[in-house]
Amino acid sequence: MLRLDHLCKNFGGLPALSDVSFTVPKGKVTALIGPNGAGKSTLINCITGVLPATSGSVLFKGHEIVNLASHKISALGISRTFQNLRLFPRLSVLDNVMTGLTCEGGHSMIMAMLRLPYLRHRERQLKLRSLEALDYFDLSDKIYWPAEILAYGDKKRVELARAIVGKPDLLLLDEPVAGLNGEETAAVGDQLKLLRRAGHTLMLVEHDMDLVMEIADQVVVLDSGRCIATGTADEVRRNPLVLEAYLGRMEATA
């Protein structure tokens, strides 16, 4: 589904990612883990065109997408959430989620100004689908709230709803449960499992190891911009390099 080949990203002279290569198989959940500053978010940003990569390639469904504009990558079927929530605060919850369907709205400004019947019909469909997604995340009673006044947990779920409403082929989640309590984490975990069962391909960056062990089919470990291990959760857990990356850091900070 997604193949990274020798992806490098430098900030100034500082390498944030060097020679990262791995594949994300279709229909599986890939977890990307690593200590703070390992380059996980940078990697997601490079894949989604938020940051330009320095070199290397990213193949998605056979298309070379490295350094393509964000909106084009989104149109190819990659959708994402952000580490620090990026909702549109003044838009309603419903509008936030409907923005996730931008690619399917696909009509010109002039058409939109004339508001032809077929457009109204399509808008209604988009709205229905958004309502469905919101219902799935149990947010139906807050659809007209401005997103900014939601509680943190609700905001996280709105962002998830916004990311999946367009039925993306690949969903990139940057720390979906960061800052949530145990109960909320379990709920999001269940929802992610449902998504996998529905055939979505997921890649998530996560620090919550319980969640990673529970739902990931494949774990990729990054450390200082390098990919140091790939495998199932159990394989990775026993890998001495991984232990060193995590424990070494703990010794240093202790």
Partner: peptide, 12 residues
Amino acid sequence: EDETAAAALGVN
């Protein structure tokens, strides 16, 4: 409201 997020959702 958020140019990066809008672009990631497919807004050119």
